[in-house]
Amino acid sequence: MTTTLTLATIALFFLALSSASAAAAACNKHDHRALLAFKDSFPHNSFPSWNSSARCCSWDYVTCTAGRVTNLYFAGNSLTPPPIDLNGSIPASIGDFPRLESIYLGGMRSLAGPVPPEIAKLKRLQSLVITDTSVAGPVPPFLSQLRALRQLTLASSMFAGSIPSSLGRLANLTSVYLQQNRLTGSIPGSLFSRTPNGSLAELDLSGNKLTGSVPKSFAGVGFATVRLSENGLVGDASFLFGRSKPLQLIALQRNKLAFDLSGVEYPSDLTYVDVSHNRIYGSISEQVLEGPVLHYLDVSYNELCGKIPSGGFFSTFIPGDYSHNKCLCGAPLSPCKSTGSL
């Protein structure tokens, strides 16, 4: 399994990588010792550029600002820096970098074990990414101590258990990617509850075993993207839509959601909608032609009826996008009967 990083994620790491100063290559002695301790936790791996030299800010996988380590980037599928495969668990020494702002651990299936509690010491951490690994255990509640955290990615790994409601305490958290794990239970309504008004939020919980309903509190969150597909969610999710919302992508497919699509209002920035394989009823409103320009639409395998809107971007969709509904009609499906299809 792989994880698709957003442009914001990529930009964050490359910004950190580009901020290193050649004049500050001789990094702080404390950080130097912590890097060597991190290296010693993986005796079967090679860190060719990591040696006794104090100029550790020039080492691969490390970025410094003013001589302090601010970014650690370890990827098994990277070209620059060279790919690396960390075989073992994340060591406690990961918490010994007081100026650390971002951690990336990705594409390393040999990386296992839990997230160490020492990560909670990183009070300046803004981005924590652990993706495409064998890291397991619960999503740690102690992550709520990372008050500067803006992005949390624990994806395509082996995390299990419930999503801690304590993550809602993080006022700076705007991006949560927990997809493709083994998470169970309900989605905590506290998530994003302290996110400032006007901030764009991104959420991906797809490919888990979550149950219950989508929290009503999400109606007040400024989501840019919402991915909740391939879970066991039930009930109403229509409040995620809204004409004035900044929503660009919504993927709710393969759940047990049931709501009336007829009155749903579509945001002007919306380009991608997948609500297939649910229990959604009603009809597709003509209002969808007034605002967004959809590039992708799939409402198949629901209980929809009525005439499919014609014209505009609707001419680009195929029968499979509407198939297996109760009584949808009109192009690209069969023509509607003159007496009506409702």
Rank of each mutant, 00 (worst) to 15 (best):
Arg33Tyr: 15
Gly76Phe: 01
Leu125Met: 08
Asn45Pro: 09
Gln180Lys: 12
Leu149Ile: 08
Trp59Val: 01
Val221Pro: 00
Ser229Met: 04
Lys307Thr: 12
Asp274His: 09
Phe47Lys: 03
Leu200Pro: 06
Pro196Ile: 08
Tyr301Met: 06
Phe38Tyr: 09
Leu15His: 14
Asp96Trp: 05
Val135Gln: 04
Ser217Asn: 08
Tyr281Trp: 15
Ser165Trp: 06
Pro246Thr: 06
Ser144Pro: 07
Ser186Trp: 03
Ile187Gly: 02
Ser244Cys: 07
Gln151Lys: 07
Leu297Val: 00
Lys209Thr: 10
Ser175Gln: 14
Ser49Tyr: 01
Asn172Cys: 05
Ala34Phe: 04
Glu202Tyr: 15
Ile308Gln: 11
Gly220Asp: 13
Ser102Asn: 13
Leu333Ser: 07
Thr153Phe: 00
Arg150Asn: 12
Pro215Trp: 13
His44Ala: 07
Leu247Gln: 00
Leu228Ile: 09
Lys123Gly: 01
Gly198Thr: 11
Asn28Cys: 09
Phe317Cys: 04
Val214Met: 05
Leu342Ser: 11
Tyr266Thr: 07
Pro335Ala: 14
Pro332Phe: 04
Leu7Phe: 14
Ser323Ile: 08
Cys336Ile: 08
Cys56Pro: 03
Gly340Val: 09
Gln151Leu: 05
Phe42Gln: 05
Leu100Gly: 00
Pro83Lys: 04
Leu111Asp: 04
Ser285Ala: 13
Ala136Phe: 07
Ala8Val: 11
Asn302Ile: 05
Gly168Leu: 00
Val275Pro: 00
Ser229Glu: 12
Gln287Val: 11
